[in-house]
Design a protein around this nucleic acid. Sequence first.
DNA 1: GTGAAAGCGCTAACAC
DNA 2: GTGTTAGCGCTTTCAC
Lengths: 351, 351
Amino acid sequence: MLFSIYDNDIRKRFLFLFLEVRKVPTISDVAKLAGVSVSTVSRVINNKKYVKEEKRAAVIAAMKELDYQPSSIAIQLRGQRSKILGVIVPRITNPFFSYLVDAIQKQAYNRNYQIMIFQSNESAEKETVFLELMQQKRIDGIILCAVENDEKTIASYSKYGPIVLCNERFENGKLPTVSLDHEEGAYMGVKFLLEKGYRKIGYCTGAGFEEEYMERTRGVKRALAEYNLTVNKDWYFTQQLTIEDGQRLAYRYQKLKDKPDAIFTGSDEVAAGFISKVQTLGVAIPNEVAVIGYDNQLISELTTPDITTIDQPITEIGKQTMNMMFSLLEGQEYQINTEKLQMEIIIRGST
Amino acid sequence: MLFSIYDNDIRKRFLFLFLEVRKVPTISDVAKLAGVSVSTVSRVINNKKYVKEEKRAAVIAAMKELDYQPSSIAIQLRGQRSKILGVIVPRITNPFFSYLVDAIQKQAYNRNYQIMIFQSNESAEKETVFLELMQQKRIDGIILCAVENDEKTIASYSKYGPIVLCNERFENGKLPTVSLDHEEGAYMGVKFLLEKGYRKIGYCTGAGFEEEYMERTRGVKRALAEYNLTVNKDWYFTQQLTIEDGQRLAYRYQKLKDKPDAIFTGSDEVAAGFISKVQTLGVAIPNEVAVIGYDNQLISELTTPDITTIDQPITEIGKQTMNMMFSLLEGQEYQINTEKLQMEIIIRGST
DNA sequence: GTGAAAGCGCTAACAC
DNA sequence: GTGTTAGCGCTTTCAC
């Protein structure tokens, strides 16, 4: 079944290839070959003035002949900068984060920075390990797209380099932050349901603790309050994050005596899992229960019906986060462009 | 709409925090504080023998007091190893690759390696840039989950460090490779359709060129040949990769005079896009046309009906790729475990 | 214009 | 057991 060309002969051949002590050429090899000093070579590499044209040409020829590439490690040790930024996400397999990382990486690439992606897997210890990499000078700055430790712990690493919170924030926090107003996003979703005439609104949250997702909860409550409603405890579902959670929710829904007529799921995954499963149980969407997602992921267009959802401008979040990061790196100011960071409701078949 | 705590006072405070020339402690600071030499400190850090217990304790205390972290850059420059591996994927937003990266990263983490993810975006030049990072000693090895350049170009970087092909390969290629037998995967899918009684088999491929996806094409042809059938040109769709491609395919399908009664899409995305769209056009799945995907991604369970697909053991691919990589890094042998790299057909509602 | 030499933080050979 | 020192590859004064 498996095809591998990795047989013995070939293994040996390739082991040889890179185990052979093929000395990688250094700046002094180039200098020797070009018949100049290392400092002259360095000047050529860094495009400094004060190098006679013929020497410059000789150096360039020597570099080409040796297939020379400056060691970025040595440059780092000398210059104390790695030109690498770290991005911490909970899970890269979550499409929201893979798109966010994509947006961030494009910005980094434009400025000749590399990105190292870390998955915290919701572990505070892992997050600390990654923050320490900055202390070890391995990365110049960190973008936190997920927060596991408390603000004090995280902020204590600020002395080693800039830390920017991306689409996360602490209540009254003090770290540089680029994030959307999720209170507004949740408000927008629930308000839309209310305006459509739904009155028995269910609410899912990813929160495991009281403090998380507080913003969204506030938005939900605010919208309900405008119609003199409050959150019904029986329709308030915590720790709803994945497709599987949504599928399980379908069974829970079916068992309720008094059922909600609309659910704000806070997640396209949960919405998709719920919609696909609950219909196999004979429940009609949106006639018996309307559903609204969050994030406007591709999956929100795949279910039948497709999902009304709240769109986040991921590309723009990534862009502004990186603008902020680079400003900080250069010790400059950066003013967030709030106008480009608006959320938007995308109306589809599930409501 | 946007909430940002990044006002002027706070900006200044944080700029100060990390712009302040807070000298990061070095090994000699620790040595000084502990009253020993740098070599003793180095011995303690690296858990070498021959250090008196009391000195060891003094060093540890000094490290703690200074909040000392060894500079990994200096270690790299000294040791010529970065403990970073590069992984090149076409797009991290493709779920198949985000799961593959996840699997690879878990293995790396276990061995205290970091990984740097590069997106080639199907550009040969970008791929070259990333390969050069190995030449610059920034990364110790590269895992190629996508191939843009020809084998000769890629192999020429082997002298700078190991390169492992993951789920890609060159026909008669010579680079270390861990990949599945996609001829078998395609064969499996089409054979299943034939056994179910379908005879008018359509076939999608992601290929833009003749050479790509040859394996799968061979598998398709082999299965058809067993039933004395050949590929019908009208039902052979190239460059089908995304959900959007699948949606467009639905319109193309509808316009065909002579329609296939089953389609091997080679991709869960294409299958999902096709299924969700074609049903809105009044075509019944699987009664009028059966559909089979590839990869067993989560989306294959979200459409109605859900999608029959070919499962790839992603976690296992990642694991064996990394075993191979680490063996190469250590100059050792590694025998791929082919038994754990089997593909499997997952039968669901779309066939 | 150009080169010699110091030094970035660390490890390891060598001396004591 | 412990300290001194050379050197990893580079940039950057400082002389000339």
